[in-house]
Amino acid sequence: MSPDLLILSAGCFVAAFCSGVAGFAFVLVAAAILLHVLPPSTTAPVLVLGSLFVQALATPAVWRDIPWRRLGLLVAAATLGVPVGLLVLVHGPAPTIVAAVGVLLVVYAGFALLSIALRHAPARFDAGARADAAVGFLAGILGGIGGYVGALPAMWTDLQGMEKRAARALLQPFIVAMQAITTPGLALGGFFTAETLLMAASAVPAMLAGTWLGLRVYKVIPAQAFRVVLLGLLLVSGLSLVI
Rank of each mutant, 00 (worst) to 15 (best):
P222D: 14
V204L: 01
L74F: 06
V62S: 06
I221A: 13
F137N: 00
L105P: 10
C18S: 12
A123G: 12
S240I: 00
W212R: 12
A200M: 11
V176I: 08
A151W: 10
T193A: 07
S115R: 15
G136M: 01
L208V: 13
A76F: 01
P122E: 02
I141D: 01
D126I: 11
Y148W: 12
G20D: 02
T96V: 14
L47W: 00
G81S: 03
A187I: 13
L8D: 07
G146S: 03
D65M: 12
G140F: 02
P67E: 03
I175R: 08
T79L: 14
L49F: 02
V101L: 13
R124L: 11
A31D: 11
A16R: 09
S41W: 15
A201V: 11
L47T: 05
A58V: 10
F26A: 03
A154Q: 10
G72D: 04
P95F: 03
A16T: 03
V98W: 05
G110R: 08
P67D: 04
P83S: 02
L230W: 07
A94N: 05
F191N: 15
F111N: 15
A131R: 13
D132E: 11
L89T: 10
A121E: 13
G238C: 00
L197R: 09
W156K: 10
P173K: 03
V217G: 05
T196I: 08
A180K: 02
L239A: 15
V14I: 11
L38K: 05
I221M: 14
A206Y: 07
C12F: 02
L241K: 11
V54F: 01
A78C: 03
V217D: 01
A129L: 14
L198R: 14
L234Q: 09
R64D: 15
P60C: 02
G23L: 05
L241F: 06
V236A: 15
F17I: 01
G144A: 03
G23P: 01
F53E: 09
G161C: 00
L113V: 04
M178D: 02
A167N: 04
P60M: 03
H91M: 13
A133M: 05
L239H: 13
A56P: 07
L113D: 04
F53R: 05
G185A: 05
V54H: 03
H120N: 12
T43Q: 05
L230A: 14
T183H: 07
L231G: 10
A117Y: 15
G20W: 08
L213T: 02
R69D: 11
V217T: 01
R119F: 09
G144V: 00
V46M: 08
Q172Y: 11
V229E: 08
P39W: 06
F24L: 08
P3N: 04
T157Q: 11
F192T: 08
A180V: 08
A127I: 00
I181K: 06
D158E: 14
L186Y: 09
G128M: 02
T79P: 02
A133L: 03
G150N: 03
A131E: 13
F137D: 04
G102T: 06
I116M: 14
P173Y: 04
A167I: 07
A225I: 15
A58Y: 09
L6R: 13
F191K: 15
V103Y: 04
